[in-house]
């Protein structure tokens, strides 16, 4: 097989910067950012008010900011788990079919670049846009924590919240990849948006119910096997992977993410926090699953795109 001419990444920088610029000025992105800022701000404020009276009693004050909620406002984590996939979908649902619709694809691909570059550039542009936005949000949380609570976060808390930032970014990128793949498969942006949202709702709301029904059907009611199977099936959903890994990182007392038998926790000092390294080990499979899913979905989209006609 002959090696192809030049670098496969010729023109990547051009596409990347154009996409990043597009996403930054995109009205969808701005609306979502305002929404994230408002909701996250509200939940942070409520959490900070609650935590003020416990200053000095808890060594993980910063992390509590992410998880504490007070009726009727959900926690920061809940808001983010809802809004980040939406951001990914909003950025990706017309990534490719939008180019077809605007008749710009033929123009761009007739320039001295390979097809791959368009897909890589778009994905990297979206990744960078989401990374910047989430980083800004993360810095805002750290800053607010110091401002409201008057306590500087410890190194471990910073590390844990940074991992949480990374998990959130991976979660957003996964939904971007799903939406982008839909935009390659479906001609109409409206259809790809609908399919992406339907998948998101399916995995967030319906899959946990379905997995439970399947587990009971196979393993029987109230059995260890059924519970174990339910957890395994549930982990097919990116939402479960995200929530499990976020909780394990933000709540250091989390010792296990699966079904645990009483005999397995004998001798454990319940309520004691796990060291950072142990928490990281706990979520390693989830992180690996995230990376694998992102690569899998991207490869699927890549193959379909390579086979696609320039004229749709």
């Amino acid at each position: 097989m002959k090696k192809r001419e030049g670098s496969a990444l010729t023109g990547l920088k051009v596409v990347f910067f154009k996409e990043l610029q597009d996403y930054a000025g995109n009205i969808r992105m701005i609306v979502l950012m305002v929404l994230i800022l408002l909701t996250a701000g509200a939940s942070m404020y409520v959490a900070a008010q609650t935590l003020r009276s416990y200053v000095g009693e808890d060594s993980f004050m910063l992390l509590n900011l992410f998880t504490i909620s007070q009726n009727p406002i959900p926690s920061f984590l809940t808001f983010i788990s809802f809004l980040v996939p939406l951001t990914g979908i909003a950025l990706g649902f017309d990534a490719i079919n939008g180019e077809f619709q605007n008749r710009t694809l033929g123009r761009v691909l007739s320039q001295p670049i390979y097809r791959d570059v368009l897909l890589f550039g778009k994905a990297l542009g979206a990744l960078a846009a989401m990374a910047i936005v989430l980083l800004a949000l993360w810095l805002l949380v750290i800053g607010s924590a110091m401002l409201f609570l008057g306590v500087p976060p410890s190194g471990e808390q910073i590390a844990r919240s940074l991992i949480y930032y990374l998990i959130t970014l991976l979660y957003g990128v996964l939904w971007y990849m799903i939406a982008m793949t839909c935009s390659i498969i479906f001609k109409q942006p409206a259809v790809s948006a609908l399919v992406s949202i339907a998948l998101w709702l399916f995995f967030m709301i319906f899959w946990p119910m379905i997995s439970q029904i399947i587990a009971i059907g196979i393993g029987g009611v109230d059995t260890y096997e059924a519970a174990k199977l339910s957890v395994i099936l549930n982990r097919i959903s990116p939402y479960t992977l995200y929530v499990e890994s976020a909780i394990a990182m933000l709540n250091p007392t989390t010792r296990s993410l699966g079904v645990v038998l009483f005999s397995q926790v004998q001798g454990a000092l319940m309520g004691n926090p796990l060291p950072f390294g142990q928490s990281l080990l706990l979520i390693w499979p989830q992180m690996t699953a995230f990376f694998a899913s992102i690569i899998l979905v991207f490869v699927l989209g890549y193959i379909v795109f390579q086979r696609k006609e320039i004229r749709m």
Binding site: K2, E5, G25, N102, R103, G106, R107, P112, Y114
Partner: peptide
């Protein structure tokens, strides 16, 4: 097909339904 970059550098193409980024 073998040297697409060289060809695309020297050949200009205007598609039948040309589109631009409107914004």
């Amino acid at each position: 097909l073998r040297t697409p970059l060289t060809v695309k550098r020297q050949v200009g193409y205007m598609p039948d339904t040309i589109g631009f980024y409107d914004y």
